[in-house]
């Protein structure tokens, strides 16, 4: 017999850790990106040409990682009872 409360609590712990590090990732990457771009914007003219490419890859990186994490959460939630993940 599966203890559903334990399973939900353990799933929340898994999700909590990922949300925490993902939040830290969003903060640090955008902070680093903004600081470097704003420092170089007026001093280095090439930055204006390259900026759209940099922004595109930053958005791709953060977007794909976030979608990937949501998929992992859904997968664990879907199969946790069948595979007895938290026994």
């Amino acid at each position: 017999m599966v203890n559903e409360t334990k399973y939900h609590n353990d799933l929340k712990k898994d999700a909590g850790i990922i949300v925490l590090v993902l939040g830290l990732l969003f903060f640090s990457e955008t902070f680093v990106f903004y600081t470097v771009m704003s420092t170089l914007w007026d001093a280095v003219p090439e930055v204006r040409t390259l900026f759209p490419v940099y922004l595109l890859f930053l958005l791709l990186l953060l977007g794909i990682e976030t979608i990937g994490c949501i998929r992992v959460y859904n997968s664990i939630k879907e199969h946790m009872y069948d595979f007895k993940y938290y026994e």
Binding site: V21, L24, V32, T35, V72, Y85
Partner: peptide, 30 residues
């Protein structure tokens, strides 16, 4: 023990950690 949970969860957590480490390292060193 449970590869269907451990692999995606460990792999994605690892990837986030590395992205974090890369950005922070780049910033302080630069």
């Amino acid at each position: 023990k449970h590869p269907t949970r451990a692999i995606p969860l460990g792999q994605q957590a690892g990837m986030i950690t590395l992205l974090l480490g890369a950005g922070m390292t780049f910033y302080v060193c630069a």
